[in-house]
């Protein structure tokens, strides 16, 4: 257990410009730990997509990361509106993001599919009116 590292990040609400700071900080920490650059990139992309989602769809949230010798686990938790139909939300190209977000280069309906693509394990739990929790694991090998 002693070789597990825990990190926690707050994602502030509403500030689209600042979104990505948590992922950026995690990326630098993983690089400093000497994690394989390919793994670092997968983790950074998956978390960045999640962080953007938390800002677009929810009121920010919290991200907990556990780094162990075997894997990197990210748990992204928000108290946003929740997702009514997860299956639909997972479809590439499906998006409920507003036009102003599309003008900023997001909302192409690729966020959740990308998060799944770059992680080895992906789990999403959501309750309408309560919030969404995404758990992703990326193996170290």
């Amino acid at each position: 257990m002693s070789n597990m590292i825990h990190m926690s990040y707050e994602v502030p609400p509403g500030d689209f410009t600042r979104a990505g700071e948590a992922s950026s900080n995690l990326k630098s920490s993983l690089k400093k730990m000497g994690v394989n650059p390919e793994i670092v990139r997968k983790v950074a992309i998956a978390m960045y997509e999640g962080e953007i989602n938390m800002v677009i769809h929810a009121t920010g949230g919290k991200i907990d990361v556990v780094v162990s010798p075997e894997e990197i686990e990210m748990v992204l938790k928000d108290q946003g509106p929740g997702i009514a139909n997860i299956e639909l939300a997972m479809q590439a190209g499906y998006s409920t993001a507003p036009d102003n977000i599309r003008n900023l280069g997001f909302g192409a309906g690729m966020g959740l599919p990308n998060m799944k693509k770059y992680s080895d394990e992906f789990k999403i739990e959501s309750t309408v009116g309560v919030g969404t929790t995404v758990t992703m694991k990326v193996k170290m090998e």
Binding site: S24, R41, I45, Y48, G105
Partner: peptide, 15 residues
């Protein structure tokens, strides 16, 4: 042709 801070962030994540 997109010009905002998230372009730089995206490139950072993607190396």
């Amino acid at each position: 042709g997109l010009c905002n801070l998230q372009v730089i962030r995206t490139c950072e994540m993607m190396d």
